[in-house]
Design a binder for these strands. Structure first.
Lengths: 224, 224
DNA sequence: TGTTGCTCAATTGTATACAAGATGCTAGTA
DNA sequence: TACTAGCATCTTGTATACAATTGAGCAACA
């Protein structure tokens, strides 16, 4: 049950159903899931250890907020770790996986012209997961995922509605990444991935809006 | 209470009092700390989310084991992230902090010739903390700490008993790091830190011993 | 002897009860 | 009106009880 709870809750947080900063009470979840507070408290502790739930001085729980400082901190870390992933993947990535990369990138190009941007951001996410998974490192996967979790819904929402001029640039940069993998050039793979993500994240940061407290303002809220 | 529990437990794990792979039962901790199972379970979940406690298929809890694969995975990640820390620290590190670095390195040199190696490894740890803390990034600090936690007692024990030929090399490499900081050269700071840690970790991996299952064998166990 | 099945103890999961602390509302007072 | 004291309510923390599952030991049987 605890496993189910943590899964459902983290998904709700990652997908934005439970919006950042939203207060969470145990009795609320008790009604929601129909189990007693004991397993709910444990699930919340798990998510707290994972960084998805914040606890204030009065022990109240909130969905982890997304602030400008937060994003500015997280972005370079992810860029750095994905760069490492690319470096470690370069010597071991196989032909199938490279073909998957090419395919995803082509579908992304197609989606940019024909389909919606949601599709683009989804394909983009898949693209990056390929070489991360190619590295047989549970810890690296977990670390990147836990850092990405906190912002994944941002990547999914923002990239859809914001100015899309970055997408063709990303597609070209992806080609550079693929070339590095084809050449099995670990150094270049790391450099290109890191440079790519650094650019994307700077762009995201520039196009994101924040309130006076530094909290990220969701597009949905803007639209209201 | 939960806070106290997690603190005491994680310290016991990090310091090696609770050795890796050791099974942990709730009733045991109940007697140990004199509180009921409810807060204990929550503390264990927090540590589980943090990666210090492992849970098997039968829900039994163990202190996180240290395996050869584990170390081989964790080391490059820490090296990468500390490199990033150095890069981000370079533009903002101040004179006091650089002087602290110089001082720690000199004391390390002194300790190498005069005092015990325990002192060396402690000073070494302090040295690295200086520039990590110089970066005002709670997330980077937390990420590095959580990765280091799992191996910190290894750094504290192994480096003491193993061949000490690496220490003078480390001291020289530290000087290179300090020079990069003095020059405010972010690129060089990252490179030198990463190269330094990569070397140290390769050395640690070479001098560590593992059993057939890949579990790390503690020096204490060897001595028995 | 080896194996099967049973029972009991130990461990973990969940529910509930009560305690402690925080919040908010109301009424009374200046 | 503004402010404060006090009470009711809500939320969280801890303890305890019971259920479910696992593991070990033992006995019966082929």
């Amino acid at each position: 049950m605890v496993g189910q709870l943590t899964h459902d809750l983290s998904e709700a947080i990652v997908k934005g159903t439970l919006s950042p900063g939203r207060r969470i009470t145990e009795s609320e979840l008790e009604n929601w899931f129909g189990v007693s507070r004991a397993p709910i408290r444990e699930a919340l502790r798990l998510l707290q250890g994972d960084g998805l739930i914040e606890v204030d001085d009065y022990k109240r729980k909130y969905v982890r907020r997304i602030t400008k400082k937060n994003l500015a901190e997280v972005f370079p870390i992810i860029a750095c770790l994905e760069g490492l992933a690319a470096r470690l993947a370069a010597p071991v990535i196989n032909g199938d996986q490279i073909r998957t990369l090419i395919d995803l990138n082509e579908r992304m190009r197609h989606a940019y012209f024909e389909a919606g941007y949601e599709q683009c951001s989804h394909l983009n996410h898949e693209f990056h997961r390929v070489y991360i998974k190619a590295v047989d490192s549970e810890i690296l996967n977990r670390t990147i995922k836990s850092l990405t979790n906190g912002i994944s819904w941002l990547l999914l929402t923002n990239i859809c509605y914001a100015d899309s001029e970055t997408i063709p640039v990303s597609i070209e940069e992806h080609e550079g990444i693929i070339e590095a993998f084809e050449a099995k050039d670990a150094e270049r793979a790391e450099q290109t991935v890191r440079a790519h993500l650094t650019r994307v994240y700077q762009w995201l940061l520039r196009y994101s809006t924040f309130d006076a407290k530094g909290d990220y303002i969701m597009d949905q809220q803007l639209a209201e």
